[in-house]
Amino acid sequence: MIQPIVKARDLQKHYPVKSGFLKPSQNLRALAGVSFDLYAGQTLAVVGESGCGKSTLARLLAMIEEPTSGRLSIDGVDLTEVNNKSLSKGLRQKVQMVFQDPFGSLNPRHKIGDILQEPLVINTGLNASERRQKALEMMSLVGLREEHFQRYPHMFSGGQRQRIAIARALILKPKVVVLDEPVSALDVSIQAQVINLLIELQQELSLAYVFISHDLSVVRHIADEVLVMYLGRPVEHSSKEVLFSNPQHPYTQALLSATPQVATQRDRQRIKLKGEMPSPIDPPSGCVFNPRCQYANQDCLTTPPVMELYNESRVACWALKQRRIGDEKLAN
Protein backbone atom coordinates (compact mmCIF):
# COMPACT_ATOMS: atom_id res chain seq x y z
CA MET A 1 0.00 0.00 0.00
CA ILE A 2 1.24 3.47 -0.82
CA GLN A 3 1.96 5.62 2.17
CA PRO A 4 0.32 9.04 2.21
CA ILE A 5 2.90 11.79 2.21
CA VAL A 6 0.87 13.98 4.52
CA LYS A 7 -1.37 12.44 7.13
CA ALA A 8 -3.41 14.78 9.29
CA ARG A 9 -5.63 13.49 12.09
CA ASP A 10 -7.96 15.79 14.00
CA LEU A 11 -5.71 18.83 13.74
CA GLN A 12 -6.69 21.64 16.06
CA LYS A 13 -5.30 25.10 16.54
CA HIS A 14 -6.49 27.48 19.23
CA TYR A 15 -5.35 31.03 19.79
CA PRO A 16 -5.88 32.88 23.06
CA VAL A 17 -7.62 36.20 22.46
CA LYS A 18 -7.59 39.06 24.96
CA SER A 19 -11.13 40.34 25.23
CA GLY A 20 -10.52 43.12 27.71
CA PHE A 21 -8.07 44.48 30.22
CA LEU A 22 -9.12 42.42 33.22
CA LYS A 23 -11.24 39.78 31.58
CA PRO A 24 -9.79 36.30 31.11
CA SER A 25 -8.58 35.60 27.58
CA GLN A 26 -10.89 33.59 25.36
CA ASN A 27 -10.08 30.73 23.06
CA LEU A 28 -10.32 31.28 19.33
CA ARG A 29 -10.67 27.92 17.68
CA ALA A 30 -9.17 28.73 14.31
CA LEU A 31 -9.05 25.08 13.37
CA ALA A 32 -11.27 22.49 15.01
CA GLY A 33 -10.52 18.99 13.90
CA VAL A 34 -9.26 18.50 10.35
CA SER A 35 -8.22 15.11 9.02
CA PHE A 36 -7.02 14.08 5.58
CA ASP A 37 -4.48 12.00 3.68
CA LEU A 38 -2.49 13.40 0.80
CA TYR A 39 -0.55 11.26 -1.66
CA ALA A 40 2.36 12.14 -3.92
CA GLY A 41 1.30 13.71 -7.20
CA GLN A 42 -2.12 14.60 -5.83
CA THR A 43 -3.73 17.94 -5.13
CA LEU A 44 -5.93 18.56 -2.15
CA ALA A 45 -7.84 21.81 -2.44
CA VAL A 46 -9.01 23.49 0.73
CA VAL A 47 -11.93 25.79 0.05
CA GLY A 48 -13.83 28.25 2.18
CA GLU A 49 -14.51 31.89 2.85
CA SER A 50 -12.19 34.15 4.80
CA GLY A 51 -12.05 33.14 8.44
CA CYS A 52 -12.74 29.48 7.75
CA GLY A 53 -9.30 28.43 8.98
CA LYS A 54 -7.75 27.51 5.67
CA SER A 55 -4.72 29.76 6.15
CA THR A 56 -4.23 28.40 9.66
CA LEU A 57 -4.20 24.91 8.19
CA ALA A 58 -1.56 26.06 5.70
CA ARG A 59 0.63 27.39 8.49
CA LEU A 60 0.34 24.16 10.43
CA LEU A 61 1.25 22.06 7.41
CA ALA A 62 4.18 24.29 6.60
CA MET A 63 5.38 23.92 10.20
CA ILE A 64 5.33 27.63 10.80
CA GLU A 65 3.06 26.97 13.74
CA GLU A 66 2.44 23.93 15.85
CA PRO A 67 -0.97 22.35 16.24
CA THR A 68 -2.65 22.64 19.62
CA SER A 69 -3.67 19.01 19.36
CA GLY A 70 -3.98 16.29 16.78
CA ARG A 71 -1.43 14.38 14.77
CA LEU A 72 0.41 15.46 11.68
CA SER A 73 2.88 13.21 9.95
CA ILE A 74 4.95 14.08 6.93
CA ASP A 75 6.45 11.28 4.86
CA GLY A 76 5.76 8.75 7.60
CA VAL A 77 7.33 10.76 10.44
CA ASP A 78 5.02 12.01 13.15
CA LEU A 79 5.79 15.66 13.75
CA THR A 80 4.46 15.71 17.28
CA GLU A 81 7.04 13.12 18.28
CA VAL A 82 10.06 14.72 16.67
CA ASN A 83 12.29 16.46 19.14
CA ASN A 84 15.53 15.99 17.33
CA LYS A 85 16.54 19.28 15.72
CA SER A 86 18.32 17.91 12.69
CA LEU A 87 15.44 15.59 11.93
CA SER A 88 12.92 18.41 12.12
CA LYS A 89 15.14 20.45 9.84
CA GLY A 90 15.11 17.63 7.33
CA LEU A 91 11.34 17.43 7.59
CA ARG A 92 11.03 21.15 7.11
CA GLN A 93 12.71 20.86 3.75
CA LYS A 94 10.05 18.44 2.62
CA VAL A 95 7.24 20.95 2.94
CA GLN A 96 7.51 24.34 1.31
CA MET A 97 4.99 27.09 0.79
CA VAL A 98 3.95 29.66 -1.80
CA PHE A 99 2.20 32.70 -0.40
CA GLN A 100 -0.78 34.62 -1.62
CA ASP A 101 0.70 38.08 -2.00
CA PRO A 102 3.57 38.04 -4.50
CA PHE A 103 4.45 41.58 -3.45
CA GLY A 104 4.98 40.71 0.20
CA SER A 105 6.60 37.32 -0.07
CA LEU A 106 9.83 38.41 -1.72
CA ASN A 107 12.31 40.50 0.21
CA PRO A 108 12.30 43.85 -1.62
CA ARG A 109 15.96 44.51 -0.80
CA HIS A 110 17.32 41.22 -2.11
CA LYS A 111 18.13 40.27 -5.67
CA ILE A 112 16.29 37.35 -7.24
CA GLY A 113 19.48 35.31 -7.23
CA ASP A 114 19.97 35.86 -3.50
CA ILE A 115 16.36 35.01 -2.76
CA LEU A 116 16.64 31.72 -4.61
CA GLN A 117 19.99 30.83 -3.10
CA GLU A 118 19.04 31.58 0.49
CA PRO A 119 17.58 28.10 1.20
CA LEU A 120 20.71 26.53 -0.30
CA VAL A 121 23.04 28.70 1.78
CA ILE A 122 21.23 27.70 4.94
CA ASN A 123 20.62 24.05 4.28
CA THR A 124 23.38 22.78 2.02
CA GLY A 125 27.14 22.92 1.87
CA LEU A 126 27.24 23.87 -1.78
CA ASN A 127 29.77 26.45 -2.89
CA ALA A 128 28.85 29.68 -4.61
CA SER A 129 29.09 28.48 -8.21
CA GLU A 130 27.11 25.29 -7.50
CA ARG A 131 24.42 27.33 -5.80
CA ARG A 132 24.27 29.72 -8.71
CA GLN A 133 24.00 26.80 -11.07
CA LYS A 134 21.08 25.32 -9.12
CA ALA A 135 19.30 28.65 -8.88
CA LEU A 136 19.64 29.17 -12.63
CA GLU A 137 18.31 25.67 -13.31
CA MET A 138 15.32 26.39 -11.13
CA MET A 139 14.75 29.73 -12.85
CA SER A 140 14.62 28.14 -16.26
CA LEU A 141 12.26 25.49 -14.90
CA VAL A 142 9.71 28.13 -13.89
CA GLY A 143 10.20 30.16 -17.07
CA LEU A 144 12.46 32.97 -15.91
CA ARG A 145 15.43 34.13 -17.92
CA GLU A 146 19.04 34.16 -16.85
CA GLU A 147 19.32 37.93 -16.86
CA HIS A 148 16.66 38.12 -14.17
CA PHE A 149 19.19 36.76 -11.68
CA GLN A 150 20.59 40.16 -10.78
CA ARG A 151 17.31 42.03 -10.55
CA TYR A 152 15.23 43.15 -7.61
CA PRO A 153 11.63 41.97 -7.03
CA HIS A 154 10.04 45.37 -7.65
CA MET A 155 11.08 45.15 -11.28
CA PHE A 156 8.83 42.16 -11.87
CA SER A 157 5.12 41.86 -12.47
CA GLY A 158 2.90 39.89 -10.12
CA GLY A 159 2.95 36.77 -12.27
CA GLN A 160 6.72 36.72 -12.53
CA ARG A 161 7.07 37.26 -8.80
CA GLN A 162 4.85 34.29 -8.21
CA ARG A 163 7.14 32.27 -10.49
CA ILE A 164 10.08 33.37 -8.36
CA ALA A 165 8.22 32.34 -5.21
CA ILE A 166 7.50 28.94 -6.76
CA ALA A 167 11.14 28.54 -7.72
CA ARG A 168 12.20 29.34 -4.17
CA ALA A 169 9.75 26.81 -2.78
CA LEU A 170 11.03 24.08 -5.11
CA ILE A 171 14.75 24.65 -4.78
CA LEU A 172 15.11 22.31 -1.78
CA LYS A 173 13.27 19.57 -3.66
CA PRO A 174 10.26 19.36 -1.34
CA LYS A 175 7.65 16.64 -1.57
CA VAL A 176 4.74 18.78 -0.50
CA VAL A 177 4.02 22.34 -1.57
CA VAL A 178 1.43 24.33 0.32
CA LEU A 179 -0.07 26.89 -2.06
CA ASP A 180 -1.88 29.58 -0.11
CA GLU A 181 -4.11 31.34 -2.66
CA PRO A 182 -1.23 31.41 -5.15
CA VAL A 183 -3.18 33.00 -8.00
CA SER A 184 -5.85 35.09 -6.34
CA ALA A 185 -3.76 38.26 -6.56
CA LEU A 186 -3.09 37.78 -10.27
CA ASP A 187 -4.92 38.82 -13.42
CA VAL A 188 -6.87 36.21 -15.35
CA SER A 189 -4.38 35.84 -18.19
CA ILE A 190 -1.44 35.61 -15.78
CA GLN A 191 -3.39 33.34 -13.45
CA ALA A 192 -3.71 30.85 -16.29
CA GLN A 193 0.04 30.92 -16.90
CA VAL A 194 0.84 30.26 -13.24
CA ILE A 195 -1.72 27.48 -12.94
CA ASN A 196 -0.30 25.80 -16.02
CA LEU A 197 3.15 26.08 -14.54
CA LEU A 198 1.97 24.49 -11.31
CA ILE A 199 0.31 21.62 -13.15
CA GLU A 200 3.40 20.97 -15.26
CA LEU A 201 5.70 21.06 -12.25
CA GLN A 202 3.47 18.66 -10.39
CA GLN A 203 3.59 16.15 -13.21
CA GLU A 204 7.32 16.55 -13.67
CA LEU A 205 8.34 16.33 -10.00
CA SER A 206 5.34 14.32 -8.69
CA LEU A 207 4.68 16.91 -6.04
CA ALA A 208 1.80 16.80 -3.61
CA TYR A 209 -0.08 20.10 -3.48
CA VAL A 210 -2.24 21.52 -0.78
CA PHE A 211 -4.06 24.18 -2.77
CA ILE A 212 -5.81 26.74 -0.62
CA SER A 213 -8.29 28.92 -2.42
CA HIS A 214 -11.63 30.65 -2.30
CA ASP A 215 -12.04 30.52 -6.07
CA LEU A 216 -14.06 27.45 -6.96
CA SER A 217 -13.50 27.72 -10.69
CA VAL A 218 -9.74 27.43 -10.19
CA VAL A 219 -10.16 24.62 -7.69
CA ARG A 220 -12.39 22.74 -10.09
CA HIS A 221 -9.57 22.85 -12.58
CA ILE A 222 -6.58 21.91 -10.47
CA ALA A 223 -7.81 19.74 -7.59
CA ASP A 224 -8.09 15.99 -7.18
CA GLU A 225 -9.80 16.17 -3.84
CA VAL A 226 -11.63 19.06 -2.23
CA LEU A 227 -12.06 19.85 1.43
CA VAL A 228 -14.70 22.48 2.14
CA MET A 229 -14.30 24.29 5.43
CA TYR A 230 -16.56 26.56 7.42
CA LEU A 231 -15.55 28.35 10.61
CA GLY A 232 -12.58 26.10 11.26
CA ARG A 233 -14.47 22.86 10.72
CA PRO A 234 -14.49 20.63 7.67
CA VAL A 235 -18.03 20.32 6.31
CA GLU A 236 -17.47 18.27 3.19
CA HIS A 237 -14.57 16.25 1.82
CA SER A 238 -14.77 14.41 -1.47
CA SER A 239 -13.23 13.96 -4.85
CA LYS A 240 -13.49 16.89 -7.23
CA GLU A 241 -15.89 15.14 -9.59
CA VAL A 242 -18.34 14.27 -6.83
CA LEU A 243 -18.14 17.64 -5.15
CA PHE A 244 -18.85 19.69 -8.23
CA SER A 245 -21.45 17.41 -9.77
CA ASN A 246 -23.28 16.41 -6.63
CA PRO A 247 -22.50 18.64 -3.64
CA GLN A 248 -24.02 17.28 -0.45
CA HIS A 249 -23.61 19.82 2.34
CA PRO A 250 -25.96 22.84 2.19
CA TYR A 251 -22.98 25.16 2.54
CA THR A 252 -21.15 23.58 -0.37
CA GLN A 253 -24.28 23.89 -2.45
CA ALA A 254 -24.62 27.57 -1.57
CA LEU A 255 -20.95 28.22 -2.24
CA LEU A 256 -21.14 26.60 -5.66
CA SER A 257 -24.28 28.44 -6.50
CA ALA A 258 -22.86 31.83 -5.43
CA THR A 259 -19.79 31.49 -7.62
CA PRO A 260 -20.37 33.56 -10.75
CA GLN A 261 -19.75 31.89 -14.07
CA VAL A 262 -19.47 33.16 -17.59
CA ALA A 263 -21.40 30.28 -19.06
CA THR A 264 -24.66 30.55 -17.20
CA GLN A 265 -28.10 31.83 -17.94
CA ARG A 266 -28.85 35.20 -16.42
CA ASP A 267 -31.92 34.03 -14.54
CA ARG A 268 -30.62 30.89 -12.92
CA GLN A 269 -31.92 30.14 -9.44
CA ARG A 270 -29.39 30.89 -6.75
CA ILE A 271 -29.30 29.44 -3.29
CA LYS A 272 -29.05 32.60 -1.26
CA LEU A 273 -27.23 32.48 2.02
CA LYS A 274 -28.58 34.77 4.66
CA GLY A 275 -26.23 36.73 6.87
CA GLU A 276 -22.51 36.29 7.32
CA MET A 277 -20.05 33.96 8.95
CA PRO A 278 -20.24 34.26 12.75
CA SER A 279 -17.21 35.14 14.84
CA PRO A 280 -14.92 32.17 15.55
CA ILE A 281 -14.49 33.41 19.13
CA ASP A 282 -18.13 32.74 19.89
CA PRO A 283 -19.30 30.08 17.41
CA PRO A 284 -22.93 28.95 17.45
CA SER A 285 -23.68 25.76 19.34
CA GLY A 286 -24.36 22.56 17.47
CA CYS A 287 -23.57 22.71 13.78
CA VAL A 288 -21.70 26.00 13.22
CA PHE A 289 -23.53 26.55 9.95
CA ASN A 290 -26.99 26.47 11.53
CA PRO A 291 -27.72 30.25 11.63
CA ARG A 292 -27.44 30.43 7.83
CA CYS A 293 -28.79 27.03 6.92
CA GLN A 294 -32.28 26.65 5.52
CA TYR A 295 -32.53 23.03 6.73
CA ALA A 296 -31.59 23.69 10.36
CA ASN A 297 -33.68 21.95 13.01
CA GLN A 298 -33.39 21.27 16.74
CA ASP A 299 -30.58 18.73 16.35
CA CYS A 300 -28.52 21.17 14.33
CA LEU A 301 -28.81 23.73 17.12
CA THR A 302 -27.63 21.44 19.89
CA THR A 303 -25.21 18.77 18.70
CA PRO A 304 -22.29 19.20 16.33
CA PRO A 305 -22.50 16.72 13.44
CA VAL A 306 -19.63 14.40 12.59
CA MET A 307 -18.14 13.57 9.20
CA GLU A 308 -19.85 10.57 7.64
CA LEU A 309 -20.01 9.08 4.19
CA TYR A 310 -23.03 9.94 2.02
CA ASN A 311 -23.10 9.45 -1.75
CA GLU A 312 -19.29 9.14 -2.00
CA SER A 313 -18.74 12.33 0.02
CA ARG A 314 -17.69 12.66 3.61
CA VAL A 315 -20.07 15.25 5.01
CA ALA A 316 -20.84 16.65 8.45
CA CYS A 317 -24.55 17.44 8.37
CA TRP A 318 -27.60 16.48 10.39
CA ALA A 319 -30.04 17.12 7.60
CA LEU A 320 -28.25 14.56 5.44
CA LYS A 321 -27.98 12.02 8.22
CA GLN A 322 -31.66 12.33 8.97
CA ARG A 323 -32.41 12.14 5.23
CA ARG A 324 -34.09 15.52 5.27
CA ILE A 325 -32.31 16.67 2.13
CA GLY A 326 -30.98 13.47 0.61
CA ASP A 327 -34.40 12.30 -0.59
CA GLU A 328 -35.29 15.62 -2.08
CA LYS A 329 -32.15 15.31 -4.16
CA LEU A 330 -33.15 11.89 -5.36
CA ALA A 331 -36.52 13.23 -6.38
CA ASN A 332 -34.92 15.54 -8.95
Binding site: S157, G159, Q160, D187, V188, S189, I190, Q191, A192, Q193, I195, N196, I199, E200, S217, V218, R220, H221, I222, Q261, V262, A263
Partner: peptide, 18 residues
Protein backbone atom coordinates in the same frame (compact mmCIF):
# COMPACT_ATOMS: atom_id res chain seq x y z
CA UNK B 1 -8.06 31.78 -20.21
CA UNK B 2 -10.84 31.23 -17.69
CA UNK B 3 -10.56 27.86 -15.93
CA UNK B 4 -14.15 27.01 -16.80
CA UNK B 5 -13.36 27.22 -20.50
CA UNK B 6 -10.32 24.97 -20.32
CA UNK B 7 -10.20 21.80 -22.31
CA UNK B 8 -7.85 19.26 -20.84
CA UNK B 9 -5.44 19.75 -18.02
CA UNK B 10 -3.79 22.99 -19.10
CA UNK B 11 -5.44 26.40 -19.36
CA UNK B 12 -5.30 28.53 -22.50
CA UNK B 13 -3.04 31.18 -21.04
CA UNK B 14 -2.20 34.37 -22.91
CA UNK B 15 1.57 34.39 -23.37
CA UNK B 16 3.60 37.35 -22.14
CA UNK B 17 2.57 40.23 -19.93
CA UNK B 18 0.73 43.52 -20.29
Amino acid sequence: ALPERAQGKLLNAIPGVV
